[in-house]
Design a binder for these strands. Structure first.
Lengths: 230, 230
DNA sequence: CTTTAATTCTGATCTACCTCAACAAAAAAG
DNA sequence: CTTTTTTGTTGAGGTAGATCAGAATTAAAG
């Protein structure tokens, strides 16, 4: 984890992100003062479940995996891509992160003090509104995860995961090559062995194609049907 | 569902709630204009999963159960008590509720248009801040639910539920008498039969006492241990 | 290039928990 | 009070999916 107090040029570049465009004058100063650029190598933790959270991370470049830990078992919640925040949900409530995040690729982030975000929220309703929209999105996702765990069995869960990981938004990152079978099974909440067996079965039925780590969806409608039926 | 356009006296009373105290002058007018009091009988739906959401409900009196539906299976997420909102997470994102809520007791609510909340958020950072804190709380709860479903098996899950339902905050509502065995099992995400067997086993070990619908916790430390171990 | 370690794959068991079926008790309806 | 319906209770059997164990492949290290 390399910390760089960056120059004005870099700063202008960062602030280009849509979510900071509604800030004005002294509000920008506030962010400028409190923020720091931090670079994470592939495999490094951006946040660790249970540690003290005094800042939010804003992803500038790279892909990050968000997951829950319990002993040696993980549950992968989502991928985080440039333009998204890490740690939003913990910063205004609990003082500790309730999940871990790991860089799947080398990742450039901007670290913003909790107190700065707090002040911006109070002063700039437009910014608060944008933040709340993000909270709602994440809530929706969490409800989705609960639904998957609660109502679906492994076929449906894995199908759901394959559809998620093959979304257009992740295409530029070639995510399948960044994930091994264990990672995929942790998204579905099933064992690695089951994942392997199911993937092979899907390949046999010409629904997906497996070459090395890469997985291509050959028959999306059927996969969606499997995901729906559970 | 009885709708009452209430008088000024009632209004003053409602606005006493902590979350509206930071509002001033015309902001209060905004709430006053957009809001309506709605009374729900025990057993009635406050929100129905999948229906169009154009408003938020603020619970004034009564207890409400929030749950996910899928076919004939339910998963109970939490109880909502006076001073809390129903529908926050859906209103700024999706236009439909992603969960259902049912009144466990006769329940008095205040219905506030989504647009009014939106405007308040933009104009009053203090209000937005309060709202965000609620989002964070709910996120924490959702992470907790995922953890329960993912990492714990039925003993731990049921113990967790008993500890939750026996919290001091719910004591005034005598919630156990409002819930049947099916409701409890839906909180734990296990079958009714398993719930009954486990409850009986806990009673035999003098960890809880069952009389009729009421459940009293006799040995909280052991129950917490069971909940921890999973 | 060789050795070691990690990941992928496959089949054989094992188990937590659900489902089913049948009955008891309580509540609601007549 | 009697009948019907709902809720609670118990045990037997079935099953989805985990765990285990071992082989095959790939990647990393020496």
């Amino acid at each position: 984890m390399k910390t760089i107090q960056e120059n004005d040029h870099d700063f202008i570049c960062d602030i280009d992100a849509p979510c900071f465009q509604m800030l004005v004058g002294d509000e920008l100063d506030l962010v400028r003062e409190s923020k720091t650029q931090v670079f994470f190598r592939k495999g490094e933790n951006l946040t660790k479940q249970g540690t003290f959270a005094s800042y939010i991370l804003f992803v500038i470049q790279g892909v990050v995996k968000q997951h829950l830990e319990e002993g040696d078992r993980n549950y992968n919640l989502r991928l985080i891509k440039p333009g998204e925040f890490v740690g939003l949900s913990t910063v205004f409530g609990n003082s500790t992160y309730n999940y871990s995040t790991i860089a799947l690729t080398d990742t450039q982030t901007m670290l913003i003090e909790k107190s700065a975000i707090e002040q911006l929220t109070r002063n700039n309703g437009q910014f608060a509104f944008n933040l709340i929209q993000r909270y709602c999105e994440q809530s929706s996702m969490l409800y989705g995860s609960i639904r998957n765990l609660m109502y679906k069995q492994m076929n449906g869960r894995l199908a759901e995961v394959l559809l998620y990981l093959s979304r257009d938004e992740f295409a530029p990152f070639d995510v399948f090559t960044l994930l091994n079978r264990k990672d995929i099974s942790d998204f579905a909440g099933i064992s690695t062995e089951s994942t392997v067996k199911l993937l092979k079965a899907l390949e046999k039925d010409h629904i997906i194609r497996l070459n090395d780590k890469n997985i291509s969806i050959l028959n999306r409608p059927i996969l969606q049907e499997i995901a729906e039926k559970g």
